[in-house]
């Protein structure tokens, strides 16, 4: 059993939770993820690790409340326990001195990019952090990023902060840069990673994305996480989750992520109660 050390909603619908998982924390590296289950009957859910403390033995996760597992996770309170936290899974992001790195994060990706940004900074990179959200009130960890970035750029769809629009407006931003951008890393929802990769492509900037297909075991056993990269099938959990964003077959990934869309609404439809919230209290 794994203890919840703290849990809070940081912006509407995005939750931050810190769990006690000493073995995982000890081996954790930037870009890796864990799989957890919120209760005994629960699904195995992959979530990126946004921060950790090897000495305290804790890991921190940021997640979007989107379905039954994440909903139950959002109801956890300090001192409660969950049955599964397994990891660290996947390969770590390659941290080298690339020069200038453009980091683009949206949704939970703002959190999951943080350890990557920190490690890249320690390696001497120049960091440009781009934070993307629908509106300024959905942004978080801004102060944290200001401390480790050379520049922080905001994009909001409603224009309440920074550039107005979607990640595609980075187009102009990149064009106007004096020092060339050597590398881009994008974390967040599939759509953001896809459009972000499309945006960097004309500039020939190597772009790494952290793919988020459906997963079960996270160890290469089930094959549900297969993604097509440059025409070849890969298992995201063991070959990734980082891949070259210009090689990803995005259509296939978006389509495969929809496999259980119909089923996933069942718990919510059958009755507001039996599906999720009551179970975690009983």
């Amino acid at each position: 059993m794994f203890k919840v050390l703290s849990s809070q909603m940081i912006v509407p619908n995005l939750h931050q939770i810190t769990l006690e998982a000493p073995a995982v924390a000890k081996e954790m590296r930037p870009g890796q993820f864990v799989i957890l289950r919120a209760d005994e009957d629960g699904e195995r859910t992959p979530l990126s690790v946004c921060d950790w403390d090897a000495e305290l033995g804790s890991i921190t996760i940021i997640f979007l409340n989107i379905g039954s597992t994440t909903n139950r996770l959002s109801e956890l309170r300090d001192g409660m326990y969950i049955p599964t936290v397994v990891g660290p899974l996947g390969n770590a992001t390659d941290i080298e001195n690339y020069g200038t790195v453009l980091l683009v994060g949206g949704c939970y990706g703002i959190g999951s990019l943080f350890p990557i940004a920190r490690a890249l900074k320690e390696k001497g990179n120049r960091i440009i952090m781009v934070m993307e959200a629908r509106s300024s009130y959905l942004l978080y960890w801004v102060e944290r990023y200001k401390q480790i970035s050379d520049e922080v750029v905001f994009i909001t769809r409603d224009g309440t902060l920074g550039l107005r629009g979607h990640v595609t407006c980075l187009d102009d931003y990149i064009k106007n840069q004096e020092t060339p951008i050597d590398m881009a890393i994008i974390n967040g929802c599939t759509f953001l990673m896809k459009t972000g990769s499309d945006t960097t492509k004309p500039f020939d900037i190597k772009t790494i994305v952290s793919l988020n297909p459906i997963m079960i075991d996270g160890t290469g056993m089930c094959g549900v996480c297969r993604v097509r990269i440059g025409g070849e099938t890969k298992f995201a959990c063991v070959d990734g989750p980082d891949f070259d964003g210009h090689q990803v077959d995005w259509e296939e990934l978006l389509q495969r992520r929809k496999t259980y869309m119909r089923e996933e609404v069942v718990p919510f439809r059958t009755s507001g109660c039996q599906g999720h919230s009551c179970k975690s209290q009983g």
């Binding site: 009957d41 629960g42 699904e43 039954s68 597992t69 259980y260 069942v266 059958t270």
Partner: peptide, 15 residues
């Protein structure tokens, strides 16, 4: 493992 045949009582769906 995930008891898909008991979905939605158990969380993991099977088609």
């Amino acid at each position: 493992l995930m008891k898909g045949y008991l979905f939605p009582e158990f969380d993991t769906p099977i088609k």
